[in-house]
Structures are given as structure tokens and as C-alpha cells.
Lab assay of single mutants.
Amino acid sequence: NKFNKEMRNAYWEIALLPNLNNQQKRAFIRSLYDDPSQSANLLAEAKKLNDAQA
């Protein structure tokens, strides 16, 4: 399933972002599970926040 693969990839990328705190990571990951079709958008948002907090 395409969404499962995208979701799994996004999950690990988000989990490993160095500048997000655990609460932020959990919120993004919860959103991934709520709507796997938004994986790419959620990952992009997480990366933006990660960069902003660098």
C-alpha cells in the first residue's frame, strides 16, 4: 500500500528531526495516523518547523 510506505517513511523522518521536541514529534505522528494520505504534507510542515527552530 502506497500510503503505508509513505507514512512509514514520514514517521521515521519526523522522529529523527533534531530540532523538534517530543511533543511536536508526537503531534505530527498522531496526524500521520489520523490521515496517512497527508504524509508528504505533514513531513514538509515538520521539516519547515525543524528548520525554523534550528
Rank of each mutant, 00 (worst) to 15 (best):
A54L: 09
F28I: 07
A52C: 05
N22G: 10
I29G: 05
I14S: 00
A44W: 09
A52T: 08
A15E: 06
W12N: 13
Q24K: 04
L17G: 00
S37C: 08
K2Y: 04
L43H: 02
K5D: 14
L17K: 07
E45L: 10
N4P: 15
E6V: 04
Q38P: 02
I14C: 01
R30E: 10
K5Q: 07
E6K: 03
N19P: 00
K48M: 07
E13Y: 14
L16Q: 13
R26L: 13
F3H: 15
N41M: 11
Y11R: 12
A10H: 03
D34P: 02
D35F: 05
A46K: 00
A54Q: 08
F28S: 04
A46V: 04
P36L: 05
L17T: 02
Y33Q: 06
Q53I: 10
L17N: 02
F3G: 15
I29Y: 06
Y11G: 03
S31G: 06
K25W: 02
W12H: 12
A15D: 05
K5C: 14
L42A: 05
Q53S: 11
A54P: 10
K47Y: 07
S39G: 13
P36Y: 07
D51G: 08
Y33R: 03
Q38G: 11
Q23T: 08
K2F: 13
A52G: 11
D34T: 05
N41L: 08
Q53R: 06
A40E: 07
F28L: 14
I14T: 01
N9Y: 14
E45Y: 05
R8E: 14
N19S: 06
F28H: 03
S31D: 12
L42K: 05
L20G: 00
L20Y: 00
N41E: 09
K25A: 02
K5G: 03
E13R: 13
L42N: 03
A15K: 15
S37F: 05
D35Y: 04
L16M: 07
K2A: 13
Q38M: 11
Q38D: 10
K48A: 12
K25V: 03
L16A: 13
D51H: 10
N9K: 15
L17R: 01
W12I: 06
Y11V: 14
M7W: 14
N19I: 03
N1V: 04
D34E: 06
Q24T: 08
I29R: 03
E45W: 14
A46H: 00
L17S: 14
S31L: 09
Q38E: 05
K2V: 03
A10R: 03
L32K: 00
K5M: 01
P36W: 05
N1W: 00
L42H: 05
N21H: 10
N50K: 01
P18C: 09
L43D: 00
L17H: 10
E13W: 10
P36F: 09
N50Y: 01
L16C: 13
W12Q: 09
N50T: 01
Y33I: 13
K5H: 02
S39Q: 06
F3S: 15
E13L: 14
L32Q: 01
W12V: 07
N9E: 14
L32A: 01
L42R: 06
K47G: 03
D34K: 08
I14N: 00
L43P: 01
A46L: 01
K47T: 04
N50W: 01
P18A: 14
A40Q: 09
A40M: 11
R30F: 13
P36Q: 04
A40V: 11
L43E: 03
A10K: 02
W12D: 04
R30W: 10
F28K: 04
K48C: 04
E13I: 14
L42F: 05
A44M: 10
E13T: 09
N4G: 12
D51A: 13
A46G: 02
D51Y: 11
N4L: 08
M7L: 14
A40L: 12
L32R: 00
A54E: 10
